[in-house]
């Protein structure tokens, strides 16, 4: 499998990159880690004339504690994210998620920016970013703007990012201290996309749920924010009954396709099971388990 030929660009600055993206338009493609794009190019499902490699843009790398947020450069690899003490301290769901993405080699190349920006509903980080209420920082010819992860995904490979914009960073508001979290992913084997997966963030105050967010992976055309499911937990003790109700509500918003992972009914049910299990685990962690 040989990709079609292209011209290679390695811009030295973000502005140069944005300029190239603007210049080549539909004939250009942004190369981050490449582990989604290059297989597509080998199959000739993607045949860009120009590849704009962000490799040299050190300003897009790194994880920084900015007080209220942690700011993650878009070119930060999954492996770098996994190793980050800053991320582990403020937001441990990130490391838990990285561990179930692809495999060690792929995580060395794959970037957080690529994972959240390309709009593949099979990617794991979009749901996690939704559950965390993350903000995406985009740079275009006219400068920078911010847009929330919730609302960013419009359809399969279709996002709020304009064709001439580059995702430069992800701002993750720190969840409340002592929060519970879990990312539960059902997959057939290492390296697989999710049959269904659920990200849960929750916090307790005096034994009652004071904050909850739930989002789902690969059971719809985009990652799905299970807002009603999350809301149903608020004020409850998150007991078994509340967990089951939230799982039911999460299942209701699913719209999976039938594929090699299983038929629609199975995948919808698995979204429920993953939600249920993620809530239970998050609860345990919130209680200091």
């Amino acid at each position: 499998m040989i990709p079609a030929n292209f011209d290679y660009h390695r811009p030295a600055s973000v502005d140069e990159a944005v300029g190239l993206i603007e210049q080549y338009g539909d004939d250009g493609a942004i190369l981050a880690g490449g582990h989604s794009l290059i297989p597509m190019m080998k199959l000739r499902f993607a045949t860009p004339g120009h590849l704009i490699d962000l490799k040299a843009l050190d300003e897009l790398r790194g994880i920084e504690d900015t007080g209220a947020d942690i700011r993650i450069g878009a070119m930060t690899t999954q492996a770098e994210l996994r190793a980050s003490a800053v991320a582990a301290e403020a937001c441990p769901i990130l490391a838990e998620t990285v561990d179930v993405i692809a495999d060690p080699q792929v995580r060395n190349m794959g970037t957080l920016g690529g994972n959240v920006a390309n709009g593949d509903p099979g990617n794991d980080m979009p749901a996690v970013m939704m559950a965390l209420g993350a903000i995406y920082v985009l740079r275009g010819p006219g400068g920078e703007r911010e847009t929330p992860a919730n609302g960013f995904y419009k359809g399969i490979f279709d996002t709020e990012r304009a064709a001439n914009e580059l995702l430069v960073a992800i701002r993750v508001p720190k969840p409340p201290a002592g929060h519970g979290y879990a990312y539960k992913k059902l997959k057939r084997k290492v390296g697989d996309y999710a049959t269904a997966a659920a990200a849960v963030i929750l916090a307790l105050e005096g034994g009652a749920c004071s904050h909850a967010a739930i989002a789902l992976t690969n059971v719809g055309p985009t990652a799905l924010n299970a807002g009603d499911a999350a809301k149903s937990l608020i004020g409850t003790s998150v007991d078994g009954e509340a967990q089951a109700r939230a799982a039911e509500l999460a299942m209701e918003i699913c719209d999976p396709v039938s594929d090699m992972h299983g038929p629609v009914e199975y995948r919808r049910n698995m979204a429920g099971v993953m939600t249920y299990r993620a809530i239970a685990e998050a609860l345990g962690r919130a209680k200091g388990g």
Binding site: G34, I38, L51, V106, M109
Partner: peptide, 23 residues
């Protein structure tokens, strides 16, 4: 050829990578 098998694994800048999915 789809970055699943790892037979192409080499070390690049101190990290394991799949050289069939790196230009």
């Amino acid at each position: 050829e789809t970055s699943h098998c790892g037979a192409c694994t080499v070390d690049l800048d101190g990290k394991s990578v799949k050289s069939c999915t790196v230009f």
